[in-house]
Design a protein around this nucleic acid. Sequence first.
DNA 1: GTCTATACTAAGATAGAC
DNA 2: GTCTATCTTAGTATAGAC
Lengths: 180, 180
Amino acid sequence: MSRPPRAREKVLDAFESILLEEGERAATLEAVARRAGVSKGGLLYHFGSRDALDAGLVDRLRLLAADDMAALHDAPEGPIWYYIATSAHVGGPFDRAISAVGRLAHGGNALARGALAELRDAWADAIRPHVRDEAALELVLLLSDGLYVNSALLNDVPSPVPTGEALEALIRLVEGATRA
Amino acid sequence: MSRPPRAREKVLDAFESILLEEGERAATLEAVARRAGVSKGGLLYHFGSRDALDAGLVDRLRLLAADDMAALHDAPEGPIWYYIATSAHVGGPFDRAISAVGRLAHGGNALARGALAELRDAWADAIRPHVRDEAALELVLLLSDGLYVNSALLNDVPSPVPTGEALEALIRLVEGATRA
DNA sequence: GTCTATACTAAGATAGAC
DNA sequence: GTCTATCTTAGTATAGAC
């Protein structure tokens, strides 16, 4: 009856944070270990190599993606609203995992690319029944991607991401233009 | 009457390619020099440090951005069409420079972040007169960002970026929803 | 399960020859 | 203007103590 291994999760949290705030290059084993509050050796007990650490983060993304897909299907405001609104709401565990795995994908990691491609396909399948055609589907998917890029990019640049009323106006516009 | 320094440009081309295809982490001075067909020492003659190389790429982006802004203003199909269509048409020098500088921005480079923020502001100013309100402006800008993310991400994953007729349908949809 | 110490490799940067 | 050689530091990984 062992409790979930806290250290492992702390390491993944640290890895994610550094990827998001400082990029792939800064996410060295030493930097991750330091931020997680363990030694390099301690980290390497849980993740035997850099590749294993990458794979650990991709696994986390897959788990969170399954939960989110369930929430999207059940959303009372409808999937389009849920999908776009949560894309702008970065900072949650799922959003962080997506962007962090995105950085690994940029670095050429095949596991990361595959997981993101699957996620995109799953979203497309969930939203397709609610829009009038493929152009409308593309618009919804691309808009959400745009929100991600922009929310992920800015750590000191002033944020161009719409929030609150501006975001609602944007979503109403998209719903009007795309709904089946 | 010295001709433009070819080696310098070759180095920037190589740096750009590696950033796009393999990410920040792979873009080491040695890898860039090898791809450019020069030695590490040769590279460091033109760019005295890694920071100088980063700055060189940001400078290139600024030059290309000025040209593109002129083309956007003169585009016969109108700025919205020009803007979205060219966002999907990655592979040109300008598009490559934007995505490559985007990678540097992810890595925390302040010059890169500043240049991209300025570019976004310039686009917003150019498109604002042609859309009906700020929500419509956001939609156009975010859609274009979405096209970039997706075109930049895929080196072996099958491309989710619409082209040809699908892209035209998407642009007509957006124009209908946003035009002033 | 976590640490310290250490080995090995690769990255950034300099010096000086050509 | 470009090269080779070399120095230094940082990144990955292993061994073995606690």
